[in-house]
Design a protein around this nucleic acid. Structure first.
Lengths: 246, 246
DNA sequence: CGAAAGTTTCTACAATGTAGACGTTACCCG
DNA sequence: CGGGTAACGTCTACATTGTAGAAACTTTCG
């Protein structure tokens, strides 16, 4: 528990003779402040560190104060997810939809790598909320991509299909990449060798021999290849400017 | 809290004059029994229902007894994931790798739909364990797919790339599909309409107009299309029997 | 200055995961 | 078959968590 006042008695530091001094260093709370603090906490210490008490302590409030800004902890998590998703910027103006999608994919990847602990929320939290009821911020990328694609000449239905394949792959890639990466990259290779060495040679011949390849993983490149493949396939199957005929 | 003895005092039912009678209806516990019960619980009531106390109650043991079979709750969850993954069968013999991958994809999808509450574990739990240290059961599909692909003539490196793109898309599709489906399909359409209707028309024109299309979603078809696209792209890019030249 | 609305805190509680010591049962070997 | 040993199960206890409800404080505005 770092970066906390840690006063014995966590009242304000100087006594309170004057009426106004306690106000210093306690800007009025609001939802954005709370969520920002929550995100920071998750980023630096992981999901489990985000407890009401801990967050209250960081914001120098009683934990109960947080309930003014989120009805419960789950809502707080949703807020964090939304915050992260909102960082994603899409340029729906660009007429070159392929390069646009590619660029967005990399932006998304960067986002995920910047907030690895949030990714599990990102991919699973929406499972608890039906699409129609999600916070607007969460739906915006979907809308924008749809816009991008219809603007490029796809029928709405095809745009939706493309979006699904695209986001599907994107999510999956991110999960894959994080799985190979989240560990301390220093010991990564050793751990990998050691770990794979443990596997029974007869049962896992391929995996074992791939240790070196697994060790140097280029996520950006892997993503780019995947997107390329996908886009090529998509373009061939669903032509823009064509009637929906899939 | 259904299907539980619910005796006031949960000692054995008749007193204990004889020494052996309490044994009835209490088969000796073992890891598989515990995990099976855990999976069943998760399947029927969701992840949050899986508490040590609840599981102990179901197995008619003190909650502490479970710690003989899993060092902690997280390990239990991992066990459940592994259990589900092991249900996935892959036929590495089939020389037609494309149809094999397609078939496996559908098998995986079926698995996910059969255990929707486990999917979040499936995709995120591995994040906590470096690849080299995962339980064998978890790595087996990876190994098998690699086998399948090298057997089909791909270089090990290319096999790995294909695996990544493939599993990436697979994971992503599943997450997407569950997001559109997990709600009670009865009220699904209404909820969707209502939900989307809430969106500001100016900001979300495309999404709003897609409500009907969103409402009838054919996951199997969507998956199949995606796989087709991906495989086509892959085949074109990485030919089997060719030297690795990507 | 005083009332009303909005914030923050205090107190309290039920539920959870799990450590440690203790009892109980099953099994094995002489 | 009898006793010893190791595996299995239980009991008690505790620290931590989310959060309800009422009370106190702060700010705002008439």
């Amino acid at each position: 528990m770092p970066d906390v006042p840690t006063g014995e008695d966590d009242a304000n530091e100087e006594g309170r003779p004057t009426t106004a001094p306690a106000r210093t260093r306690r800007p009025r709370l609001n939802r954005d402040l709370v969520l920002a603090a929550a995100l920071h906490l998750v980023d630096t210490e992981g999901l489990d560190a985000l407890t009401m008490r801990r967050l209250g302590q960081i914001l120098d409030r009683d934990p109960m104060a947080l309930y003014r800004y989120a009805p419960n902890r789950a809502a707080l998590l949703d807020g964090v997810t939304e915050l992260v998703i909102q960082e994603l910027v899409i340029e729906p103006a660009d007429p070159d939809w392929q390069s646009q999608l590619r660029q967005t994919a990399h932006a998304f990847r960067a986002l995920a790598l910047a907030h690895p602990h949030v990714v599990p929320l990102l991919v699973t939290r929406p499972l608890s909320t039906p699409l129609g009821l999600r916070p607007l911020g969460t739906l915006r990328p979907l809308e924008q991509i749809l816009g991008l694609l219809t603007h490029a000449g796809f029928s709405p239905e095809n745009a939706l299909h493309i979006y699904r394949a695209y986001y599907g792959y994107l999510y999956g890639h991110i999960l894959n990449e994080l799985q190979e990466l989240i560990v301390d990259p220093e010991e990564n290779e050793d751990l990998l060798r050691l770990g794979l060495h443990r596997l029974p040679a007869k049962e896992f011949p391929h995996l074992r021999s791939l240790a070196p390849v697994l060790a140097d993983y280029d996520g950006a490149d892997e993503l780019d290849q995947g997107i390329t493949i996908l886009l090529a396939g998509l373009q061939e199957r669903l032509r823009p400017d064509a009637a929906p005929e899939r």
